[in-house]
């Protein structure tokens, strides 16, 4: 469903992606792990055209991702994104955040969008917060609204860019719980994360990225429990046993 073929990307002289080839099947949950600055987030941002890429190709359901072509708007409605810093619209309520896309991008009738929006907020456990503005919500609640906003577009896949990295530790569980439910429901997900427990339990496959290349990939449990490559072993040791 999502195909990346030898994708290269530089920021100035700094080459962050040095030939990424990967694919994500429908219904699959793929976690991308690796040290910071390894290019994980850049991969996600290239998939929905928030970032351009220099060489290679990316396609979503056979449609080429080109951020300068009008088709990018279609791709973005099919591939939603959840950000590290939530990026909710602060001037709108939780419910308004969720229905913004359906109402103004998909031109859904208001009544229908409202009904779906309320159902989605209930799905992420925030039915009673519909009329709250983002600054009145905790980080975990904001991120769950952001997930509801992404779901409201009825996307074929959702990209998660370190969705729990900006959260207080005690709020991480709520967000991961919502994501786990989505995975169980068969949503196609690409998740950049440092939550190894989540990756092991929920992901079908894990990609380990370092220095702009995929160092190792495979089934989640196998890769995280018995990493083959020394760099993967070293990274996991430092993440799992920081002391």
């Amino acid at each position: 469903m999502i195909e990346l073929n030898d994708v290269h990307k530089s920021f100035g002289v700094n080459e962050v992606l040095k030939g990424i080839t990967a694919s994500v099947e429908k219904g699959e949950v793929v976690c991308i792990v690796g040290p910071s600055g390894s290019g994980k987030s850049t991969i996600l941002r290239c998939i929905n055209g928030l970032e351009s890429y220099d060489r290679g190709g990316i396609s979503v359901e056979g449609l080429k991702v080109d951020r300068d072509a009008p088709s990018i708007l279609d791709i973005r409605t099919q591939v939603s994104m959840v950000f590290q810093r939530f990026n909710l619209f602060p001037h709108r309520t939780a419910l308004e955040n969720v229905i913004e896309g359906p109402l103004y991008v998909k031109k859904e009738p208001r009544a229908q969008a409202l009904e779906r929006g309320r159902a989605l907020l209930a799905q992420v456990g925030l039915a009673e917060k519909a009329d709250a503005h983002p600054p009145q919500l905790s980080g975990g609640q904001q991120q769950r609204v952001a997930i509801a906003r992404a779901l409201a577009m009825q996307p074929k896949a959702i990209l998660f860019d370190e969705p729990t990295s900006a959260l207080d530790p005690e709020l991480v569980g709520d967000v991961l719980g919502v994501m786990r439910k989505l995975a169980d429901d068969g949503m196609t997900m690409v998740v950049v994360t440092h939550e190894m427990g989540f990756a092991r339990d929920v992901a079908d496959r894990v990609l380990f990225i370092d220095g702009g290349v995929i160092v190792e990939q495979g089934p989640a449990k196998a890769l995280l429990n018995q990493p083959q490559h020394p760099r993967t072993q070293d990274f996991l040791r430092r993440v799992l046993h920081p002391l």
Binding site: R76, V105, A152
Partner: peptide, 8 residues
């Protein structure tokens, strides 16, 4: 980016 990510 959030606006773009919902297809605006």
């Amino acid at each position: 980016e959030a606006a773009q990510s919902i297809g605006m």
